[in-house]
Computed example of a mutant assay.
Amino acid sequence: MSEVKTLVLNHKQIQQKITRIAYEIYERNVQEETLVFAGLTGMGYVLAGKIAERLKEISPIAVSLIRVDIDKTSPKIGEVYCSEPGPYTDKCVILVDDVLNTGKTLAYSLFPFLQDNVKKIEVAVLVNRSHKLFPVTPDYTGYELATTLSEHITVNLDPENATVHLH
């Protein structure tokens, strides 16, 4: 028996969500000279790159993109690394992931930035499942989706055929 997948967002809809998130980030950070996009391992990093590219097209804000390496299945405080070591003092960091489930992974991914005196940290996600167990709330959300904990979200950010499926 094959697994049933429900299309949640198609390629065009994902592009629209990315554009809207980029505009929202610009509106809230118009006074900033630089923003650091910190994408979580995997699709979070790909999404961060797409939002950063779109922001560069619509604003004069300088953008840097880094990857936050974290084990999403079992995050631990001492095992979160950034592809660029920083420092991030007085920087505005946009932490990006594809899906927000309980908030645990995003909470642990704050660790490298909390060691520096960052100016502020904002969170952007493509899909918010609203199963909040940790005190992490996204500042920028592409799509709110009520799901059960047993359901899964699959994000594919392929340049030609990006999709989000529920299964």
Rank of each mutant, 00 (worst) to 15 (best):
Val96His: 01
Pro85Asn: 09
Glu79Arg: 13
Glu27Asn: 13
Glu57Tyr: 06
Glu33Ala: 14
Asp71Trp: 04
Glu53Met: 04
Ala52Met: 07
Asp97Asn: 02
Val36Gly: 05
Tyr88Phe: 15
Tyr23Gly: 10
Ser83Asp: 09
Thr102Met: 02
Glu79Phe: 14
Ile70Leu: 11
Val93Met: 00
Ala48Ser: 15
Asp69Gly: 09
Lys72Leu: 12
Lys50Ile: 07
Leu65Gly: 03
Gly103Gln: 00
Ile51Val: 15
Gly49Asn: 13
Gly39Lys: 06
Lys56Ala: 12
Val80Asn: 06
Leu55Met: 12
Leu47Tyr: 04
Tyr81Pro: 01
Thr89Phe: 01
Thr89Gln: 07
Ser59Ile: 05
Asp97Arg: 04
Gly103Glu: 00
Gly42Ser: 10
Ser59Glu: 08
Gly39Pro: 02
Leu47His: 03
Ser64Asn: 12
Met43Cys: 11
Tyr88Gly: 01
Asp98His: 00
Gly86Thr: 09
Gly49Ile: 05
Thr19Asn: 12
Glu32Gln: 13
Leu40Thr: 15
Leu35Met: 08
Arg54Cys: 11
Leu40Met: 14
Ile70Tyr: 06
Ile58Leu: 12
Tyr88Trp: 07
Tyr45Arg: 03
Glu53Ala: 13
Thr102Trp: 01
Glu84Ser: 09
Glu33His: 14
Leu40Asp: 11
Ala48Arg: 01
Gly44Leu: 06
Ile51Lys: 04
Arg20Ile: 07
Thr41Glu: 15
Ile25His: 06
Phe37Ser: 05
Asp97Trp: 03
Arg20Tyr: 10
Met43Thr: 13
Pro75Trp: 02
Val30Met: 10
Asp69Ala: 09
Asn101Ile: 01
Leu47Ser: 05
Leu95Arg: 05
Val96Ser: 00
Glu57Thr: 11
Ala62Lys: 12
Val80Gly: 04
Val80Lys: 06
Ala22Asp: 08
Lys17Ile: 00
Leu65Met: 10
Arg20Lys: 14
Tyr81Arg: 13
Asp98Leu: 02
Val80Asp: 04
Val80Cys: 08
Pro87Met: 10
